[in-house]
Nucleic acid binder design. Structure first.
Lengths: 173, 173
DNA sequence: TTAAACTTTCAATAAAAATTGAAAGAATAT
DNA sequence: ATATTCTTTCAATTTTTATTGAAAGTTTAA
């Protein structure tokens, strides 16, 4: 297989994976394209390579910057902007994990603790109410467990990054 | 807050969470409804409580059974079918993890190993090719790491379930 | 065997999400 | 100040996905 074909397949696969995880196909494809491009790309490059409109390219590149996994690059003497993806996969994973925790785990945790304070009423038997709070409680503790696991991963990756960085700084150490 | 209102809010929240993770809102809502319902529900019950059509209820209940997190329950002397959700959240998490690994991790791993065998061609410089294989390699090892973590979680939960089960069987032990 | 009570399927439809492209907005150069 | 080059926005449109409901299928009872 040739490089271009391999890149094409990666972009397609990454897009499919993205849509299974609630990320729009195009956003994942823009990310994939930037991941496998050695240098930074302009909006035009992205439009051409993925065959999408200017507006679409702009929207998705900006969404990726919101996630912290794509950066704008300005070149001296160039008016237009270039974009490049974070290439360190550990950092990518960490940033995505952080963002999803904020966007999805936190809202559901809030709902869980609110609805746990269900009042006893004449319309529901105490057994029904208890079964409900027990269910919610177990989801809560699972969510806390998941949150803890995510934190651990984030910390581990931050340490890993830091130590790699330190090694680069002091190669003799 | 009253029980009905709390359940309504849970169903809504679970639906929102689902769609952020690539699960259709209705499928997540049917799951949520079954999670907070003490007994098993018939198709009619689901249709009525979520205000959805028969076909929709049927499709989503079946998808949930494919995931292994909802079971059909047959009552003696009753012709119609009842459905109930797995209530043990650890088991739910394990089953979802297993299924997603099969559906999403495996396909992308296959693509990664295929495209890694990119041939050197005159159109691409060796540096470009090497940068690409390096990128794919790091995604591969991250995917392997994630797969390993998932396996560990699945095994841990299976052990946890087994030990709980053993305790139930031999309460004196 | 026929009827009754339910489940499943699927083509048509509706709803939601993504995409376009043109216009408006910014930034820089002349 | 005006033109030029690029970016951003957003209403209209297209595409994708989900939903409906009626017909076909299945199972049990009489």
């Amino acid at each position: 297989m040739q490089l271009d074909e391999a890149k094409r397949r990666f972009i397609e696969g990454w897009g499919t994976l993205g849509s299974a995880w609630g990320v729009s196909r195009t956003m994942a494809q823009v990310h994939a394209l930037l991941l496998v491009s050695p240098g930074a790309l302009s909006a035009e490059d992205i439009m051409e390579q993925l065959q999408i409109s200017r507006g679409n390219a702009n929207m998705n590149v900006r969404a990726l910057m919101d996630w912290g996994i794509v950066r704008k690059e300005l070149r001296p003497g160039e008016r237009r902007e270039f974009f490049s993806a974070e290439k360190d996969i550990h950092r990518v994973a960490t940033l995505i994990l952080k963002e999803r925790r904020k966007r999805e785990l936190e809202p559901i945790m809030r709902v869980l603790s609110e609805i746990k304070q269900v009042e006893p009423t004449p319309t529901a038997t105490p057994e029904e109410t208890e079964a409900f709070t027990k269910m919610i409680g177990s989801i809560q503790s699972f969510a806390e467990f998941a949150d803890g696991a995510a934190s651990t991963l984030i910390k581990a990756d931050e340490n890993w990054f830091l130590s790699t960085f330190m090694k680069l700084m002091r190669p003799g150490q």
